[in-house]
């Protein structure tokens, strides 16, 4: 009984679909980072000042930091269930390159945890009184930047998936690595409103995204092998 092998593309799609299906069945996991983003972003006006002018100044940073924290919070369930139920071993033993399977999981994860945050960001931006000409820049930069958070966070979470208590150590590892994206994202909004070149910032964020798509899944895969070992 010789059966047709799946191509790497088919394995990639199967993994992507599976993870999306799991997310769909666990709607809470999908909603939590999103809710977290909304709540954290709304803590700033309460904690700092409801003064519209001051809010406008910090809005870009608040949105980016909230998105980063929301992505960090969501990271934890990227590999945990798979590690605990043994699916991760199946993933590692697939004849297909781990790079693409990990990439599929990362993409699925961003689609359910990162994309909703990006989509709702203009609304929060309005509430934080961000100048309206920056909405589009905010949206596009978050669209380019949040996948990088997911891809980098994936390395940290893959390294710590075997640990009992991993919440804080994940943050300690991942947050410093995310700083360049945070800088590029907030500067893009701030500086372009001052007349700097938008395309320059978009190029930088795009470069970060492409570089992390190319390299991060390799590191995540290696980290998963270490954790299962």
């Amino acid at each position: 009984m010789n059966k047709q092998r799946t191509s790497t593309g088919q394995a990639f799609w199967a993994t992507l679909q599976r993870d999306l299906l799991i997310a769909y069945k666990r709607k809470n996991d999908m909603a939590n980072p999103f809710m977290f983003f909304l709540i954290v972003a709304s803590l700033f006006p309460i904690g700092i000042s409801p003064d519209p002018e001051r809010l406008a100044e910090i809005a870009a940073g608040v949105l980016w930091i909230s998105a980063l924290l929301a992505s960090l919070l969501a990271m934890d369930n990227l590999y945990r269930a798979d590690y605990e139920d043994g699916s991760l071993e199946q993933l590692l033993l697939s004849p297909h390159p781990l790079y693409f399977l990990v990439l599929a999981k990362n993409i699925a994860h961003w689609l359910v945890s990162g994309l909703p945050v990006v989509l709702v960001s203009p609304l929060i931006a309005y509430m934080l009184n961000l100048p309206s000409e920056s909405y589009m820049i905010l949206f596009v930069t978050l669209l380019l930047g949040t996948p990088v958070f997911s891809l980098l966070g994936s390395i940290g979470v893959a390294l710590t998936v075997g640990l009992g208590s991993r919440g804080l150590i994940l943050a300690v590892i991942t947050l410093p690595m995310s700083v360049p994206v945070l800088i590029a994202g907030t500067l893009a909004i701030e500086q372009t409103s001052n007349g700097a070149s938008l395309s320059g910032f978009l190029a930088i964020l795009g470069a970060m995204l492409l570089a992390s798509i190319s390299v991060a899944p390799l590191a995540s895969g290696a980290a998963l092998r270490i954790s299962v070992n």
Binding site: I155, L159, T160, G162, L163, R166, I169, V172, I173, L175, P176, M177, A219, A222, A223, I226, S227, N229
Partner: peptide
């Protein structure tokens, strides 16, 4: 901060072999 992250990852992983490789990987990244 990154160095402190590597130190705390090392102390969190019990298995010395896993800790060695995890920290090696994190050092490269």
């Amino acid at each position: 901060f990154l160095l402190l992250g590597i130190i705390s990852l090392r102390s969190a992983l019990e298995d010395s072999d896993a800790a060695a490789r995890a920290c090696a990987l994190l050092s490269i990244v």
